[in-house]
Amino acid sequence: MRDTTANRRLIDWFNQWRSPLRRFLLRRNARSRAEVDDISQEVFLRLLRYSQAELVEHPQAYLFKIASNVAAEWSISARSRRPHDSKWLTELHADDLPEDAAARAKAEEEMERAINTLPPRQRAVLKLQFYEGLGYAEIAERLGTTPRAVKRNVIKSYQRLRTELNPDYLRAGSYGRE
């Protein structure tokens, strides 16, 4: 899957979005699910302003781009509200935040805990996808099932992770460099 252009492009778009969003979330310093929701509300409103014809060209790119714009704008305004916060100065120049080993370990732990709540088959699918870098078709072959069934497993596992993961830990840790 990592070899498909679709996936590569998606990852590019997604990377554009990730850093500003993370910076925003971290700087807000109160990390709750509500914050992605706040951003989403604004992203949603902006999406409505675009024409359908424009959006359908690369909807994922628009989504991530708008989200990153919103996150970036909001973190700038958050910054200007507390200009004497010593932290923001260093962050302003850094593309990414310095690694916090403890936070990263915590995030790994949280991720591991959440993954282990999944049924074995879903764990196997995710491991093949993310550890071995296989696409759905290859995973299906490996597990002796259909790509459709693999997709279903992936969908199920994302749904589970959505409720299982504590985003506080996750975000704190995944800020480090690639």
Partner: peptide
């Protein structure tokens, strides 16, 4: 907006998986 939010949450979970080191 809920759809937008859930989409971003999925992406966040994906990000967590993609950066997970202890597979």
């Amino acid at each position: 907006a809920l759809h937008v939010a859930e989409m971003l949450h999925v992406v966040e979970a994906h990000d967590g998986l993609a950066h997970f080191k202890r597979w």
